[in-house]
Every structure is written in C-alpha cells, then in structure tokens.
C-alpha cells in the first residue's frame, strides 16, 4: 500500500480492479483506495498475475501494508 497522502497513513480499501488469476500490465489499475479527500486508482508497479488479495473491500489499510501479491512472470531468453 503506497503512501497516498502526505498527511495520512490510513485509508479505506475500495475495490479490486483485477481478480486472483488475472493478468495485469505494469501501469494498469490494480485497486482503488479512498482517503479523506479523494479516491485514488493505484496502478500495478509490475507486469504479472494477481496471486493474492489480502484485504477486503471496505477494510482499513495502512501505508506500507501488503494488500496483495502480483507474481512476476519470468521471460526466458533463448
């Protein structure tokens, strides 16, 4: 969970935009999170497959907390 607001470390988890097993490209929106003034779309920092969703929609989350896991697929060079 990135730190979205310079003044707050705690947010409400919104919705997962990708479900477990779905492929996601780097930069695509992975989830939405709500802070006091805004709903932020948080993009994935890697390309891979969503392996785990560790928090539910509506849960309180803190900056730095692991909210999910995206497995990076290694590309073999031949």
């Amino acid at each position: 969970m990135p730190k979205l607001s310079p003044k707050s470390d705690q947010y409400f988890f919104g919705t997962w935009e990708k479900q477990v097993g779905e492929h996601i490209q780097k930069g695509e929106v992975l989830f939405e999170v709500e802070s006091e003034k805004v709903i932020s779309e948080v993009p994935s920092e890697v390309t891979g497959v969503v392996a785990e969703q560790r928090v539910d929609e509506g849960a309180t989350v803190k900056a730095g907390e692991v909210v999910g896991v995206v497995t990076v697929q290694m590309i073999e060079r031949r």
Binding site: P6, Y11, F12, V29, I39, S40, E41, P43, E45
Partner: peptide, 26 residues
C-alpha cells in the same frame, strides 16, 4: 481518519503516480 464520509462522486477518482509524486516531494 475514522469513518468514510458521504459516498464520494466518481469525479473524485484520480490516478496516483507514486514515482513522480516522490520526485517532487523529495
């Protein structure tokens, strides 16, 4: 922050770019 306020409208949805925000913040 304790409770979510009145449901926010769709236009309050913004894209967060952590890398660039960090650069300016630093």
């Amino acid at each position: 922050m304790t409770t979510p306020q009145t449901k926010k409208p769709a236009w309050l949805r913004v894209r967060y770019d952590q890398t660039q925000v960090k650069q300016v913040s630093q």
